[in-house]
Design a protein around this nucleic acid. Sequence first.
DNA 1: TTGTTTGTACAGTTCAAACTGTACAAACCG
DNA 2: CGGTTTGTACAGTTTGAACTGTACAAACAA
Lengths: 188, 188
Amino acid sequence: MKLVNEMDRSEIVENIRDRVIESVSQNMYLYGVSPSIGRLYGTLFFNGEPMTLDDMKEELKMSKTSMSTSVRTLMELNMVERAWRKGIRKDLYEAQDDWYQIFTDFFSNQWRKVTAMNMKAVRQSLSELTRLMDDPELSESDRELIQTDMDKYQYILNYYKWLNEFFDFLNSDELYQVVKKKMDNEKK
Amino acid sequence: MKLVNEMDRSEIVENIRDRVIESVSQNMYLYGVSPSIGRLYGTLFFNGEPMTLDDMKEELKMSKTSMSTSVRTLMELNMVERAWRKGIRKDLYEAQDDWYQIFTDFFSNQWRKVTAMNMKAVRQSLSELTRLMDDPELSESDRELIQTDMDKYQYILNYYKWLNEFFDFLNSDELYQVVKKKMDNEKK
DNA sequence: TTGTTTGTACAGTTCAAACTGTACAAACCG
DNA sequence: CGGTTTGTACAGTTTGAACTGTACAAACAA
């Protein structure tokens, strides 16, 4: 009788946990990952202890291959880290559990990568148009048309510069301060 | 001869533009939209003038249905707005061309929606566990187990609160100031 | 050395998202 | 009123992403 109660209880706790994991994973698409990968992260986060690929495969009832690739993705996003425990030969992984860190890292790593590539393309285009503009035989109307595009490219470049400054700010201590101050003010 | 040059020239400008559109669209997955939708946004952005669904369909060589649903998605993200021109019966759409606004809106709208839902799930779980803890017959080990989960839920809640403060900050003028100041400092 | 364990590359399959064409409702025109 | 234009709902198709199982390479064991 007591035993059944025990089982019920841990099952309840388990279900509650699963609901939260599901909720978190459903919304990790904001980080560009699929729900399955989100579920894996959630599992690792709540498990606390590091897990092996076989643990994960067992827990999520999925293939080992999936676990391998998923955990790789999570590592690239700095959401999961390798762990070591003496006497265990298998690879161990544990969740990075500092969500503030995950959030700011995401921008630094993913968004910066993207803006860098975009800037490159825009700079290239801008310099090509500049060269076109050198042609003295260009009609006034052509010149205007090209200038319109060039203005847009310049606007984009300025935006990306601003964005990178913003990401620097995100990584700085300043961010925590500013937001913290806001929270404290509101408590008053 | 002159005519051919003219054609070459505008073709070159067009190609340069397409390269930038492609680059921008490829990376709009950070906003959770597919490359096609990104390409549509880029087309609208560089076209300057508002476009009808048929214009878009023509420009991108895609079905009108796709244009209709894509433009809808872009409107929900505040990246495209309806436009009116007298004498034109068809619906007109133009790109929201303030990228700073798009960026901050994205967080306010998308991320906030998600965090709100997550918070709800976590709060629910937290209150259910609290009720479980009321049981006086609970063993010490069970109690510890549940407490571990509750601590994690509390951590998540704190994080989301912080995140919402951060989004408030994003929407405030303060953001622009802080980053602007950084940029000015660096120029010195 | 051979035998075992562990992680991953790769080919094939499954499934969901993107896209199309048709068909229709709503708005407008005469 | 019927005829036309325009946007979208819906069903069907295509395409790509997610996932699996097998097969193998690398690391270790004896």
